[in-house]
């Protein structure tokens, strides 16, 4: 039983990070209507920027995260303005090729700057808390609390402000958004910025318990992709719920089946859920 509770907590930790990354992916999906694979590179760079600030410049953990958030947010906007926006009249396949191209380019760039080594990010929150028979590190607790706080803020922003509503509006009907006077270019910029910050937050929070390396975005973006398929493309609650479903499945699976297979769970889950609900859990519309 204690192992089970321990694994539930671990699932909550991993799931929080998955949800953050998937949320960014799903928001940008509302603008581009393709999954932006380069989002994985933003996640990776988010980890490196925080690492660099802390290790090379000796900046405090939270300030490092803040710098990472701003840097990756801006990078995400540049990605849209310099690559996706000029391609807006072209076909979805060209968007996909461009996204994969950027992923590869940014990874090569990271390898050039930081090398191919796996790095450990230090954390000022390594303390262990014993809770009955469950052990948790303060860092893991911070991941969960911070991620949930960010998601609540995002929810309030989307639901309670005109700027947030304009993001949802553009995702649901782009021309409709134009016709009520929303500047769709502005909305695209804001959306890419938010997606970038979510990737940076996810990476910065999780890097102290994982490792930072050029390919760290691969598995995460693949899983985030699975999550938004499971949750329904473009669905916000779907991305959050999907992230936690995957987090829990992985940590429980790693304990009771085998940790060697934990990365396969995402794809098994994908097949199972899609065979039951082909449109995803939060499928939109009547189809």
């Amino acid at each position: 039983m204690d192992i089970f509770i321990q694994q539930l907590f671990n699932g909550l930790t991993i799931g929080s990070v998955y949800s953050l990354v998937a949320l960014g992916l799903t928001l940008v999906y509302g603008i581009l209507h393709i999954p932006n694979f380069a989002h994985g590179a933003l996640y990776m760079l988010g980890g490196y920027v925080t690492l660099t600030m802390m290790v090379y410049l000796g900046v405090n953990y939270w300030i490092s995260i803040l710098i990472s958030i701003i840097t990756i947010g801006i990078l995400s906007v540049l990605m849209d303005r310099l690559v996706f926006h000029p391609l807006r009249k072209s076909t979805p396949i060209q968007h996909k090729v461009a996204a994969i191209g950027m992923l590869l380019f940014l990874e090569a760039l990271a390898q050039l700057i930081w090398g191919a080594d796996y790095r450990q990010m230090p954390t000022p929150y390594g303390q262990v808390i014993q809770f009955a028979d469950v052990t948790l590190t303060v860092q893991r607790l911070i991941i969960v609390v911070a991620a949930i706080a960010v998601m609540i803020l995002l929810y309030l922003f989307l639901k309670k402000t005109f700027m947030g509503a304009s993001i949802l509006a553009m995702a649901q009907n782009r021309e409709g958004a134009s016709l009520v006077g929303i500047n769709t270019n502005k909305v695209a910029v804001i959306t890419f910025f938010i997606a970038g910050t979510l990737a940076a937050i996810g990476a910065s929070l999780t890097s102290p318990i994982n490792l930072v390396f050029p390919g760290m975005g691969h598995l995460v973006i693949l899983k985030a992709f699975v999550i938004i398929i499971i949750g329904g493309m473009g669905s916000i609650p779907g991305a959050i719920l999907g992230g936690y479903i995957l987090g829990f499945s992985e940590s429980i699976g790693a304990t009771y089946i085998s940790s060697d297979y934990k990365d396969i769970i995402a794809f098994v889950l994908l097949i199972v859920i899609l065979s039951i609900k082909p449109q995803g859990i939060f499928a939109k519309g009547g189809v």
Partner: peptide
Amino acid sequence: VQCAEDRKLFQQM
């Protein structure tokens, strides 16, 4: 302001 032929509503809102 235009009220378009296919209405262009925000269906899920």
